[in-house]
């Protein structure tokens, strides 16, 4: 199973401004000049590898969209602005592809904004299967294609869309993948999804505040996380921010770490980065989470508990994870 992240921002797209990009370039070039002044034998590429994320590509600015592929089956999760980038690539590399599957966790704007820019929607002979637990799936999609906020009416794309209502917590098959919706903790109904294929599993937990934290509180929804090979988790806020922003619907890296450790997740990626956070701030949140993780493992060792092989990081847009 392969997972590609087309958008890892939350709430609103957050492109790098020209000014910030210029400042970044200045800083990087200044550092490189200093190295060269010392006559160090290092290439530009090697040098870039040493730099922190916020000085190179950054974490990305597009909102939530992911692609899961296994065999000949491809599933998209949500249609944030990252879907537009996927669309551009598909039109170049697979222009004849005539069937797509999109699972919708919920219908907040940042998870829908890319849909009107998904080119296959406007092409005859294309079928876009749309999946969700929500009863109002079609009405929610229709709301995106509505004047005055968008000039193209839903009727133009309706023939290409197939609506599939899923049952909560029941497995459904999409080609070579199986998906199971699990409820998340968000101000409006939001359903994460466990995707399984080829003996591998993805736990998609975005958006969630994770207010239900014990296994008893989670009940059957704990099945989302159990032994997942990859967990993608909402870490929009720092831990302190998440404590303050009760019922805002988002979580933090340390909370995701603890869920992943308890449920024996192998790899955790943190997404839904806050649009107000520049890449340096996201890097600081990642560092804070790393400090927390290191201290927690130390405390576990000292308490005689087994340590963990959990691997985690804050996700970057465009990342490809081969499970």
């Amino acid at each position: 199973m392969r997972v590609r992240l087309w958008g890892v921002r939350g709430s609103l797209p957050a492109p790098v401004t020209p000014e910030r990009l210029r400042l970044r370039l200045e800083e990087v070039l200044a550092q490189f000049e200093r190295l060269k002044d010392q006559n160090l034998p290092i290439t530009a590429r090697q040098f870039i590898e040493t730099l922190p994320t916020h000085l190179t590509g950054g974490y990305g600015g597009n909102t939530s969209c992911a692609e899961v592929t296994h065999g000949s089956t491809r599933l998209l999760i949500d249609s944030g602005s990252g879907l537009r980038v996927f669309s551009d690539l598909i039109m170049k590399t697979e222009p004849q592809c005539n069937e797509f599957h999109i699972y919708f966790t919920h219908f907040h704007w940042d998870h829908l904004i890319g849909l009107p820019f998904f080119a296959p929607l406007y092409m005859k002979g294309r079928t876009i299967h749309c999946y969700a637990v929500h009863d109002d799936l079609e009405e929610s999609l229709r709301s995106v294609f509505r004047k005055p906020t968008f000039p193209v009416p839903y009727e133009v794309v309706q023939k290409q869309i197939r609506i599939h209502k899923l049952k909560p917590r029941e497995k459904a098959r999409i080609g070579e993948l199986e998906i199971t919706p699990y409820q998340l903790d968000h101000p409006d109904p939001c359903w994460g999804v466990r995707v399984e294929g080829g003996g591998r599993s993805l736990a998609w937990a975005v958006d969630t505040e994770c207010t239900r934290i014990t296994r008893e509180e989670l009940g059957p929804d704990v099945g989302l996380y159990r032994d997942a090979d990859l967990m993608v988790f909402d870490a929009q806020y720092s831990f302190g921010e998440a404590l303050e922003k009760i019922n805002w619907g988002h979580s933090s890296g340390p909370t995701g770490i603890d869920i992943a450790l308890r449920e024996q997740v192998k790899l955790a990626l943190f997404v839904h980065h806050d649009p107000s956070s520049d890449c340096e701030a996201i890097g600081q949140a990642e560092d804070q989470t790393r400090q927390y993780f290191d201290q927690l493992l130390k405390a576990r060792r000292q308490s005689g508990l087994k340590t963990s092989d959990l691997v985690w990081r804050f996700a970057r847009e465009g990342e490809i994870i081969q499970l």
């Binding site: 998440a242 404590l243 933090s252 340390p254 909370t255 405390a299 576990r300 308490s303």
Partner: peptide, 13 residues
Amino acid sequence: LTMINSLGCRKWA
């Protein structure tokens, strides 16, 4: 107190 995790910390807070 030998260990505290973020979930316990949230309950504590």
